[in-house]
Write a protein that binds this DNA or RNA. Structure first.
Lengths: 225, 225
DNA sequence: TAGATTGTTAATCGATTAACAATC
DNA sequence: TAGATTGTTAATCGATTAACAATC
């Protein structure tokens, strides 16, 4: 039995490569929709604004998916990447915080298509608790531990205020959560090395754009003199 | 008159450095809230899980904000970063697409705190057009060009389906939009080098987490045998 | 002054790109 | 076979880290 072995399959692969995989996946789907069944690293590079070298290097971290003189089979490569990412499985996931953003995430993200299953939604606001979202009844946060013991979710999505983020995180780690998708404006800390955090700092992203725009505009705010 | 000069102020600074600035900004605010007025690169490094070297290198791209033997004045540094990012100004911004995600963004993001002003919201759905969000009446997309000519927004937030993203982008570029905050599941292409795109691919982020979880679990899906 | 900590240069590390032999 | 394109090694480039003289 291989399953359960603690030996990570792609140990040597760098985070930079991993982070590019979803983008490959997206572009390959685009090709499939256009009925393109074969592509060379050179063509794909042009499409994605990368170098052909990088594409070949990236893919070869996981195996030789191409064929000399031919290129890559789009469908096969698409399936391979799905498998590498683990999208073909289904990770039990809970959402903490059903405010504006939490609701939008619940409704907008296609969990089932990308390897997740949303199985519980929690909030503290009595006006929200009891509501139905995507067929899931919003529960009070006080029922979290009971839920986790019974259902053993692996991932929690945090759409909660910065002030409570760390405390909730600590509780969730104790309840067995292994991964956080963190939307709170706070860099949550986790002291177990078998728990991972994926941050989505929307504000940070927008501030980067702010900088870029002022660079374009040539705005300077020198002390006049 | 310096304003309007096309000479970018921080031309030599790499994107990696820029992208870290908002995080510094967040942590500095945290310190201010804790009434900490002075910090060394070493202490800040520990807090942020960086090296002291990197912090000093990063900040010195923009100027010498510290003092030997003392460290950095938290308030002063906070203000400096705000200025570098251009958060102290206000960029006119429109939102395209007032579905789940668009509404959440409009309500959730503190535009005014991070250098932006939301001045228009547009959708095609007649059930949405006319609604009031944060004091802004949702207009039909057909009125976009009129609005842009009159108000000259510089940034557009795209919360629209992948299928229409490129077409809308092309229109908006023609209408003078200089920056895109793109939430559509599509890498929009822009062929002007004075237009910038900041992508937020939520699905990509979640897929990365998916990969990480399966690595932790030691999941393998080898052909058995 | 002595101690601390910066700003900055030099060394290291990692990621990207280029080159080319292998091979379909 | 000839042409195309991969897989992979080597070269380059950039980003991070270490070291240390400058200086508060």
């Amino acid at each position: 039995m291989k399953r359960g072995s603690k030996l990570a399959q792609y140990e040597g692969v760098s985070a930079s490569v991993i982070k590019r995989l979803p983008r490959y996946y997206r572009f390959l789907r685009g090709l499939i929709e256009k009925d393109i069944h074969r592509i060379s690293s050179k063509e794909l590079a042009k499409l994605m604004d990368l170098t052909a070298s990088q594409i070949r290097q990236d893919l070869n971290c996981f195996g030789g998916f191409g064929q000399q003189g031919y290129g890559y089979n789009v469908n096969a490569l698409y399936q391979q990447i799905a498998k590498i990412l683990g999208i073909d499985k289904s990770i039990k996931t809970i959402l903490i915080g059903a405010g504006n953003l939490g609701l939008a995430i619940a409704n907008h993200v296609h969990f089932e298509n990308i390897g997740f299953h949303l199985s519980g939604i929690f909030d503290v606001n009595p006006n929200v608790v009891g509501q139905n979202i995507k067929g899931i009844r919003v529960s009070h946060v006080s029922s979290l531990s009971e839920f986790c013991e019974k259902n053993k979710p692996q991932v929690a999505i945090l759409c909660i205020p910065r002030e409570t983020a760390q405390e909730i995180t600590n509780n969730l780690v104790d309840l067995g959560i292994k991964g956080f998708w963190n939307f709170s404006h706070f860099d949550i800390k986790v002291h177990h090395d078998d728990v991972i955090v994926e941050n989505v700092h929307l504000g940070d992203s927008l501030m980067t754009l702010c900088f870029g725009i002022h660079q374009l505009n040539g705005d300077t705010e020198d002390k006049q003199g």
